[in-house]
């Protein structure tokens, strides 16, 4: 007779790579680490990208934000209503994490320090590549200067191409509000860049 000690393993119903995002989220809600791992594997790149642009964090700070985002998932998964795709919902979770991040005084100082590093508008440009890089840096600085709400909407809708209807749902705002914020964000960015130019 076998003396093997059989340890039952709670598991997601199926292999993570075969499951839908929704099923993985259901697994996360019931405390399945494997489901959370699979969700991380599937969507970490988008979350990293989004948080880097929304928060301006780099390196370890960015890692912390991504980690905090995915740690929120098991608790928040039960509130998922299926009104938006899971990747969009994850970005909304990340946006909330970034909002808290933005409140920390130390992080603000870093953001300001980053602004100080942006080259002045009138610096010489030996070639187009440098000019382009400077322009990108100015966009980054202008983006960091936007209010949090405008920044999130701009990054989510314009950069990450989340449909407006879906973004409004996960951000908990009306569509009209979202479009207004997006319009304000674009206008503010253009104004900032033109101001630099002058």
């Amino acid at each position: 007779m076998s003396e093997g000690k059989l340890i039952p393993l709670r598991r997601v119903a199926g292999r993570p790579d075969e499951l839908s995002d929704e099923a993985l989220l259901a697994g996360c809600a019931s405390g399945e680490r494997a489901a959370l791992g699979a969700l991380f594997d599937r969507h970490h790149a988008a979350v990293y990208r989004f948080l880097a642009r929304v928060s301006g964090a780099v390196e370890r700070d960015l890692d912390d934000l991504v980690q905090a985002t995915f740690l929120e998932v098991p608790g928040a998964a039960g509130r998922y209503r299926g009104t938006a795709r899971v990747p969009t919902w994850l970005l909304a979770v990340a946006a909330n994490v970034a909002r808290h991040h933005a409140r920390a005084e130390g992080r603000r100082r870093k953001a300001h320090a980053r602004l100080a590093e942006v080259p002045p508008g009138g610096s010489p440009r030996p070639d187009e590549a440098v000019e382009r890089r400077q322009l990108v840096l100015r966009v980054g600085a202008a983006l960091a200067d936007l209010s949090y709400d405008l920044r999130v909407v701009f990054v989510m809708c314009d950069v990450e191409e989340v449909p407006g209807v879906e973004a409004a749902r996960v951000l908990g705002v009306r569509e009209g509000t979202l479009w207004r914020r997006l319009h304000d964000a674009r206008r503010a960015l253009r104004a900032a860049l033109e101001g630099d130019r002058r």
């Binding site: 199926g14 499951l19 259901a26 697994g27 809600a29 019931s30 998922y80 209503r81 299926g82």
Partner: peptide, 18 residues
């Protein structure tokens, strides 16, 4: 682990997975 909410979409997805 948190208690799972009674959400139809999630249950549907879980049932499909199961």
């Amino acid at each position: 682990p948190r208690r799972r909410s009674w959400l139809r979409p999630m249950l549907f997805a879980a049932a499909l997975g199961a």
